[in-house]
Design a protein around this nucleic acid. Structure first.
Lengths: 179, 179
DNA sequence: GTCTATAGGGTGATAGAC
DNA sequence: GTCTATCACCCTATAGAC
């Protein structure tokens, strides 16, 4: 793996596990097994480091959008299933960027908004009622919010006494007359 | 207003508008128009300051829960309507605590989880299908997530091209056979 | 290419004046 | 009760050795 990628991986891990405040240059360098000077060679500043993460989100997001559109179960099921973060590369990046966005980083907010807008577009191709499409988008947001709260994708809020994904999908399907 | 309350107000405002990192003792004191020493007289440490905010959340949350149960439109409509943050005292506190929770503060995470659990209970009293109740809870989470992303309750994500609240409520009502 | 050393500024917290 | 002065610590970023 390239040094660049292992640095971004370390940044994601720290943002997910310990939050935005813990993601200092020192901590990222230590987790990536490079020196602080080495980190600053690859990313000249913290802003550049964050921009690197946002570029990764854009790349992974576009790949996922293709998979979403090509999914045999349709974009909606694919979207909701993937909203229960399962530890994929995109999930890890998304949680990390969300942490930055919720910490006030406006670039991260914009990147997330763009991704969400792509999702809504793909959902709307399958579900033509805009209100239903919005409900689905917001439901996915809610699922993501749960994993963001706990930080660790292993213990999402929805695992604590809430119904499982198939039950939620069944409810959503009742909103789609054609399904 | 008591000095204590104006300090907590200042903390909320900074957390909402600028994020967790900006909520330093200095900044809170300046916004509350007290000196840093004065702030530390009322709240001996930053942990005590945060605990003060969590106590306020508990208090406002219990009041809101009563209103939710007594609402003429039923708990579900009340819950979803209030999930689109409208600048109420509870909304401000909730957004602030969510910022802390998403920054990694485990006390704040627990306080939010307790509040969410109360909501689910109240929703379940009206909606007996647990999967539908979960969808409603998550939908509210999604609405909140939008206001958290932008930080300012004045420009929630759902205002940007998504249907308005009545349209969402109509969709949700289709899930409740008795409604 | 990767490292050490250090600058310059902000942080939470304490002691003590008034 | 509220303030000023100050502490030791941690942050991002730079300069320059190897």
């Amino acid at each position: 793996m390239s040094a660049r990628d292992s640095i971004l991986d370390a940044l994601e891990r720290i943002l997910s596990d310990e939050g935005e405040r813990a993601a200092t240059l020192d901590a990222v360098a230590a987790h990536a097994d490079v020196s602080k000077g080495g980190l600053l060679y690859h990313f000249p500043s913290k802003t550049a480091l964050v921009d690197g993460l946002l570029a990764r989100l854009k790349e992974l997001g576009e790949l996922d959008l293709e998979k979403m559109r090509a999914s045999p179960d349709g974009p909606v099921h694919y979207y909701l299933a993937s909203s229960k973060a399962d530890g994929s590369a995109l999930d890890r990046t998304l949680v990390a960027v969300a942490r930055l966005a919720l910490g006030g980083n406006t670039h991260a907010q914009g990147a997330l908004e763009a991704t969400r807008s792509d999702w809504l577009e793909a959902i709307s191709e399958e579900v033509h009622d805009p209100a239903v499409a919005a409900v689905i988008l917001l439901l996915g947001d809610g699922l993501y919010y749960g994993t963001l709260l706990t930080g660790e994708a292993e213990h999402p809020v929805t695992d604590e006494g809430l119904p499982d994904l198939p039950a939620l999908l069944a409810v959503v399907d009742r909103l789609r007359p054609g399904a």
